[in-house]
Design a binder for these strands. Structure first.
Lengths: 111, 111
DNA sequence: TTTATATGTTACCAAAAGGTAACTAGTTAC
DNA sequence: GTAACTAGTTACCTTTTGGTAACATATAAA
């Protein structure tokens, strides 16, 4: 469960609220990448090659702050960090699945 | 059906593809607003008060170019313009419904 | 001794997104 | 004669987002 503060005159719309958490160019893809298993930072980065490591770090941090995933750091050399969806994050699976389905049914990639 | 050109090295991900069409701060809310009926420009604007008219115009134009909605202009005074989802736009309803459901189940607005 | 490793951080810059305020048009109501 | 109406457009600015390149770290392998 997530709490969002409203500003004056703001309408309490469920879709608007959700977009405050997973709106943005990369967050749904990151969550989609983690939907069925935990992954290391490098794995996520390799699977989303157009996303720079800097931005990936930022987005992961925000998703963690919003309670959608956990970050587990192992103090090894070289370092290892694993990201995994929380229960709240997992509850997004129906949304991600519908997005995946729509993309598969309606998008043709060319070239 | 939508065609998206890939750049070199890009992965053909259904979620990434969908985000190119409806990613962004406002597009899902606009589509959600039109999910069950056609609406005039002013109606949409009134229902999304934090969205400026300038940005609404831009977003509607992009959604029209991407084939998700139609724009019907009546040459009356004062002017009237109606926006309505196309079949492709309507095919997004399952996604929008899951987003709505998740928002209603998981978000508490405070204040 | 140098290089490679994984996961970052930092400084700096460019591009995209979004906002406000002023302006437009042609008819109707005051 | 002036204001209100709707659906924009335009100019200008700010904020957000995103990118690149360099650096840090501790150990192991060459």
């Amino acid at each position: 469960m997530v709490t969002i503060a409203t500003k004056k005159g703001e309408i309490k719309c469920p879709v608007t609220g959700m977009l405050q958490l997973i709106g943005g160019k990369w967050k749904p893809v990151i969550l989609y990448c983690l939907r069925s298993e935990k992954r290391r930072f490098g794995e996520i980065s390799a699977r989303i090659p157009n996303l720079s490591r800097k931005v990936l770090t930022e987005q992961l941090k925000e998703l963690e702050e919003d309670g959608l995933l956990t970050r587990k750091q192992f103090n090894e050399i070289p370092p290892r960090v694993e990201y995994e969806l929380t229960e709240l994050g997992k509850s997004l699976k129906p949304v991600l699945n519908e997005m995946e389905k729509w993309g598969n049914d309606n998008i043709i990639y060319k070239q």
